[in-house]
Computed example of a mutant assay.
Amino acid sequence: MRWRTWTGGLSPYVLDTFLAVCSAVVSLWAVYNDDVDWPWWVYLLAASTALYLPWRRVAPLPVLLALSVPVSLLLSAVAHSADPQVPLYAVIGMYTVAERFPDRQRWPMLVVAVAANVLGTHSPNGALFSVLTSVGGFVFGSLVRSQRRLAHLEAERAREAGERAASEAARAVAQERARIAREMHDILAHAVSLMVIQAEAGPLVVHGDPDRAVRVFDTIADSGRDAMVQLRRVLGVLKEEGAGPELAPQPRLAELAEVAERVRGAGLSMDLELPDGTGSLPADVQASAYRIVQEALTNTVKHSGATRASVRVVRAGDVLEVVVADNGRGVAAAADRAVAGWSGGRGLVGIRERAAACGGRAEAGPGPEGKGFLVTARLPLGAAGVREGVGG
């Protein structure tokens, strides 16, 4: 990019041809202004010293050894006084050696060039000037070589950084999709399960117990409205540009009272115990605990056939303990549906994922003496156990 900027997009081979013409003109001018009236073939030798320049990028060492070196040595031997004071072809040649040759070739070429300058010059001042000219071209070529290496390394680092950023972005997208899938599952599974159970009970009580039928339909409506509210919150995050996980729904432990009421409306006796001062608990831990309880109760309503369930959320030091139990058929009757599949393969797996994301763990299995079903979770409250973006 810098090369294109400096040369205005000019092809490097066109530029090298221009340099060859300039070098030939300088050499011809030196022969023309010399005190000796040189024959035509000396002019031809002077012009030929720049013959290799247009091909210096293609095969720099063979072209340099085959064209420039023999011609320049012959010119120096037969018409030394006709050499230009600053041989442009020699400067560009040493620049090419330093910039393009591998180390095993460039340093020997520098030694040979310095030796030729010292031995082929008739005066100490001339030898010193020739050495400085050759070394100057070599140093400039070495600097350009180093800059190009640095530019290549920077470009490689930028490419690797871009790949890492793309990989991290893809991983973040996958994590966000998984998080949203958990949210959608928890919201819909809980609400739809309650609505289905209530809808199935409605026809049985609509004639014999109208008041209970009204409560059944109220529960269905409440469950639907709650699901719609939570879905709007999830979809709002998806629609809002630049929205992050912190804008996603963050249910609180206090909202479990509403969940308990809806479960009671489904005909399940429900006990709920919450710790004091739930508002002071970390928001992500509260959200995870809420979703764990919600999913456990959803499985109870759908699979257990229980008549009673209890939820106990207590703070034990720096850990929040969550216990959900029921008096249903237990593991023996629900193993294939609830434990192995865990609510269609998502429910209890989601519980474990939420607990693990908080640095905690969750377990599920039979209740005391093998009766009922029990879900327990331990969620650390300390900063070391809380990870960003947990639970929704």
Rank of each mutant, 00 (worst) to 15 (best):
R2C: 00
G8C: 03
S11P: 05
S11A: 10
Y13S: 11
T17L: 13
T17Q: 05
A20F: 11
C22T: 04
A24Q: 05
W29L: 14
W29P: 00
W29Q: 06
A30W: 08
N33H: 12
D34N: 06
W38M: 06
W38C: 04
W40G: 00
W41I: 00
L44F: 04
A46D: 02
S48T: 07
A50M: 07
L51I: 09
P54Q: 14
P54V: 10
V58T: 02
L61F: 13
V63E: 05
L67T: 06
L73T: 03
D83Y: 13
P84D: 00
P84Y: 13
L88F: 08
A90T: 01
G93R: 02
E99I: 01
E99K: 06
R100E: 13
P102D: 09
R104F: 15
Q105R: 09
M109C: 04
M109Y: 03
V112A: 08
A115Q: 09
N117E: 10
T121N: 05
A127T: 01
L128P: 00
L128I: 07
L132P: 00
T133C: 12
S134G: 02
V139T: 02
G141T: 02
V144G: 00
S146T: 02
S146L: 14
Q147V: 02
Q147K: 08
H152K: 06
E160V: 15
A166L: 08
S167Q: 11
S167N: 05
E168N: 03
A169L: 14
A169G: 01
Q175K: 11
R177F: 15
R179A: 14
R179M: 15
M184I: 13
L188T: 07
A191K: 12
A191S: 10
L194W: 12
M195W: 10
I197F: 11
I197L: 14
V206P: 04
H207V: 11
D209A: 06
A213V: 09
V216H: 10
D218H: 12
D218V: 02
T219Y: 04
D222K: 13
M228W: 11
K239W: 15
K239F: 15
K239R: 04
E246C: 00
Q250R: 15
P251S: 12
P251A: 13
A254Q: 04
V259T: 09
E261P: 00
R262Q: 12
V263D: 00
R264L: 05
S269E: 15
M270L: 13
M270W: 07
G279W: 05
V285D: 06
A287E: 14
S288K: 09
A289Y: 13
Y290A: 01
Y290W: 15
A296S: 12
L297P: 00
S304L: 09
S304V: 02
A316N: 10
G317Y: 10
D318N: 07
V319N: 12
E321V: 12
V322Y: 10
V324Y: 08
V324M: 06
D326N: 12
R329I: 06
V331D: 03
A333I: 03
A334W: 15
D336M: 04
W342F: 11
G344V: 06
G344S: 08
G350T: 08
E353A: 04
R354S: 11
R354L: 14
G359Q: 10
A362D: 04
E363V: 08
A364E: 14
G365Y: 14
P368C: 13
P368W: 12
K371F: 15
G372W: 15
L374E: 02
T376Q: 08
L379F: 03
P380S: 09
G382R: 11
A383S: 04
A383N: 01
